[in-house]
């Protein structure tokens, strides 16, 4: 384990480590876990693998993007609030740079008929990718009739009735809590 001499050096190291993770991990979320284990547990020894899994589990149950939540957590545990900020900034910097470059390039060529055709094709690939994500998530999250109803309810109310997703998120959390109390009463 390397231990930097000064707090500033540690912050710089947090930033650069998460910059590296952000620039080589595609897709975020679950795809990132092996990368985090290698960089943070094996190489730096900042957190144990068990701790990392804990942060990850918490990152999934708190608002925000899992990758960012985990980065914030590791940064905070390593160097306090400044560490949390340094790790998060490291994580988002590659996205900012890469997307700004690509978007500026695309905006320039957007009017070209050939680019238009390519983009139409690209949207078809997005349809495939999103459908497969939905299928995968459904397998993991829809485990009973209540879950199926919530999933279908969210789809219909947001997709066809124009309800805001925020309302659905809040209602679903409340319904889950309510079911917990009703089941609890049955048991006791």
């Amino acid at each position: 384990m390397k231990s930097p001499d000064t707090p500033t050096a540690r912050l710089r190291e947090l930033y650069s480590t998460f910059f590296k993770i952000g620039s080589v991990s595609f897709g975020g979320g679950y795809a990132m876990l092996p990368m985090l284990e290698k960089e943070l547990s094996e190489k730096k020894g900042w957190v144990s693998e068990e701790e990392l899994l804990d942060y990850y589990a918490i990152g999934q149950s708190t608002p925000g993007i899992i990758a960012i939540n985990t980065a914030t957590f590791v940064g905070y545990k390593t160097a306090g609030i400044k560490g949390a900020v340094a790790a998060t900034m490291g994580m988002i910097s590659p996205s900012l740079i890469i997307i700004i470059l690509i978007a500026s390039f695309l905006d320039y060529f957007n009017e070209e008929p050939l680019v238009q055709k390519a983009l139409k094709g690209v949207n078809i690939a997005v349809a495939v990718l999103l459908l497969s994500s939905v299928w995968k998530f459904a397998g993991k999250t829809v485990k009973n009739i209540g879950g199926a109803l919530l999933c279908a309810g969210a789809f219909v109310t947001v997709g066809f009735l124009g309800i805001t997703p925020i309302l659905v998120v809040v209602t679903a959390a409340l319904l889950g809590t309510l079911a917990f109390f009703i089941q609890g009463r049955h048991k006791s």
């Binding site: 999103l130 939905v134 997703p165």
Partner: peptide, 18 residues
């Protein structure tokens, strides 16, 4: 408990994007 309600609903939300 809250998450058990939330997770399937989020799947439904992603389905709207799909």
């Amino acid at each position: 408990a809250a998450l058990s309600g939330l997770r399937p609903a989020v799947t439904g939300l992603i389905a709207t994007a799909a």
